[in-house]
Design a protein around this nucleic acid. Structure first.
Lengths: 213, 213
DNA sequence: TGCAAACTTGCACAGCGTGCAACAATAGGG
DNA sequence: CCCTATTGTTGCACGCTGTGCAAGTTTGCA
């Protein structure tokens, strides 16, 4: 589809296959044995690689089980957001969209992760740490936008403060969308995006709103 | 001052002293050696206890270095919030207040933690995981309030959804206040509380607001 | 004084994660 | 087809985290 890889070399294909095998094995073992009892030895055995190879692909057991956090687009996409002048949160939706879509790309992985998250609360807790870098990036991005809007410096205290607030709150809305999506058991990315758009839009109506209908 | 402990027994006092010695030693070692290089053996040596005793007080190295997350008040305080009918976020401030005050009670600890947080980004990231349980509790509490307000069940989908949103956003505001407070280098709890009140109140004005003055 | 409960410590052990060096497989040109 | 450089895999040794257990020590209390 995306004609970027004419024919991935054998080496590349094997690497991707091994990586995916370890990812799937990790979550399967956690599902079957529980998070605490899941060992790298067992995961490696299931994935059919040596324990040493496991650590060639993932820096830690957590990384394989939890996955990495979502990502922001490249500089071009970021600049587009900085220059946009729509509603702040509506524009944020557009810039968050590709990263969210990508993070739920592997269908099997998403389904496995979901069952694990529900039964293993410690996994959900640890996953939070992966959001920290993402939050940091979002805050920096919002600061760029606010600085551009107001002509102030990105390091101006007022900009920093406001960007932090907007960034943190936006990521909170993103997590809200994600949690509700997981809860509802919807498998597709489309529903997640719709929920994300809705959650972000809700931020602008926090003052007026009460409980939903 | 707080006349709750007439005279703490010798045993109790020793326990508290040991606990605090380990806490301080942990952060000092991290400050001096860095987070990665800080070992339990070294921390125990500085705190003058055996490594085994370290784990009698803290379940993990992280717990000693990161501290536990903030806490909600007891059932009486919770019920007060559930029954209150002021602005939701203003009432939330009141119920969050005691936990926040307590979490920054030990002055030396707060100052040490601050310097460590600034120089060791991995510490800040790991600290996020400690917020997960707190967030969960806040969401459950907000659900109780919304259910009481509307006469619906706490498990009604609309209540769950809205409580999740309000809870996540409120914790985001709390983190905003905390981060700005750390940044500003203000040592007292009073400033933190003022910032918390302000951040929570900002939530209600997200739609209208732009960058600060 | 003497007993019970609680605390500390050493020891053995399983698991995580890394550096290193040997070995295997692939890429790519002659 | 072969040779070589590059890249990936594996075993091994090692240090660190965290736990169960049992022996020894300190405190609480009658």
């Amino acid at each position: 589809m995306t004609a970027a890889e004419p024919t991935l070399g054998l080496r590349e294909r094997k690497r991707l296959a091994t990586r995916r095998a370890i990812l799937l094995a990790s979550i399967e073992v956690v599902r079957d044995r529980g998070f605490e009892a899941a060992t790298v030895d067992e995961i490696s055995r299931v994935a059919d690689v040596s324990p040493r190879t496991f650590f060639n692909y993932f820096a830690s057991k957590d990384e394989a089980i939890l996955g990495t956090g979502p990502m922001l687009p490249d500089e071009a996409g970021l600049q587009e957001f900085v220059d946009a002048r729509g509603s702040l949160f509506a524009d944020l939706f557009e810039v968050l969209k590709p990263g969210v879509e990508k993070s739920v790309g592997d269908h099997d992985l998403v389904l496995l992760r979901r069952t694990v998250m529900k039964s293993e609360p410690t996994v959900a807790a640890r996953r939070m740490a992966t959001l920290h870098k993402f939050e940091f990036d979002v805050i920096a991005l919002v600061a760029r936008r606010l600085a551009a809007e107001t002509g102030q410096d990105v390091d101006a205290p007022a900009v920093r403060d406001r960007a932090r607030f907007v960034g943190l709150v936006a990521v909170a809305a993103m997590r809200h969308a994600w949690l509700c999506w997981m809860d509802a058991g919807e498998p597709d990315a489309a529903e997640l995006l719709e929920r994300l758009r809705w959650s972000l839009s809700q931020l602008e109506q926090l003052g007026a709103a009460s409980v939903a209908r």
